[in-house]
């Protein structure tokens, strides 16, 4: 079974067509990257998969669950990390993770989720500080931990390492790589082509609401005879 199946997905905002009939799928254990310029429709697509927006036409199935017919069912097995995601500033980091963990379990299950969150965040003692005192990087680590600690079957990550320093970004990438080993899947969007190249098994280049190219990073580099994905991106989308 595919982790995600997107077929002829269309999203209109009034007369503006944000997504124009895109199709792609993600296998279990796969990391799939959606890359494109600003306003290409990446975030809209991620939000549609996360059931935050209503689909104009087409279909989305997450592990066989129809996102239109059973959005609540989809939300049980996904986790969505928005770009520039925030957290409730008057809570402490640990309290925020606990607040989220409460939605996914109780008792030992909740404790286990919380333990994973604390580990992924890697904030040490600072986890007991109020979030309003966090730097941008610390906040990002906290929300990444929030997204991954619940071990969703499909993680939807919008710019997962944005705002993180090199060391922490690398740590998060390692966590994402490990994350898919047990049959889970990741749909991510990033402007960092090195990151995409490192993380993704396959990528789709999206421009003006349409997928204009897709393939493995290596395959795309070979097809366009370019040394890296960034140059492929410039050639295809630029």
């Amino acid at each position: 079974m595919n982790a995600l199946e997107v077929k002829n997905l269309v999203k209109d905002y009034g007369n503006t067509k944000a997504v124009k009939g895109i199709s792609f799928d993600i296998a279990e254990g796969e990391i799939f990257g959606l890359i494109g310029p600003n306003g290409a429709g990446k975030t809209t697509t991620l939000r549609l998969v996360a059931t935050l927006l209503e689909i104009t036409s087409g279909s989305i199935k997450v592990f066989g669950i129809d996102a239109v017919k059973d959005p609540a069912g989809v939300r049980k097995i996904i986790s969505y990390l928005p770009e520039e995601a925030g957290a409730y500033k008057n809570l402490k980091g640990r309290q925020y993770l606990e607040f989220i963990a409460n939605f996914f379990g109780d008792g030992k299950e909740k404790e286990e989720i919380l333990r994973r969150g604390v580990q992924i965040a890697g904030l040490g003692q600072r986890l007991d500080d109020k979030i309003e005192r966090y730097s941008k990087g610390m906040l990002r680590r906290l929300v990444v931990a929030r997204a991954l600690m619940v071990e969703p079957r499909l993680a939807i990550l919008d710019e997962p390492t944005a705002g993180l320093d090199v060391l922490h970004a690398q740590e998060i990438r390692r966590i994402i790589k490990d994350f898919v080993r047990s049959g889970r899947a990741v749909l991510l969007s990033s402007h960092n082509m090195l990151e995409v190249e490192f993380l993704c098994d396959r990528v789709a280049l999206i421009s003006e609401g349409m997928i204009v190219e897709r393939g493995t990073p290596q395959g795309l580099k070979e097809r366009y005879k370019r040394p890296n994905l960034e140059e492929v991106f410039v050639e295809v989308v630029g």
Partner: peptide, 15 residues
């Protein structure tokens, strides 16, 4: 809306 916590809240498994 400003701190984008709403998106997270709406994506959680809660009615």
């Amino acid at each position: 809306k400003e701190s984008k916590t709403l998106e997270t809240l709406l994506s959680l498994p809660i009615r």
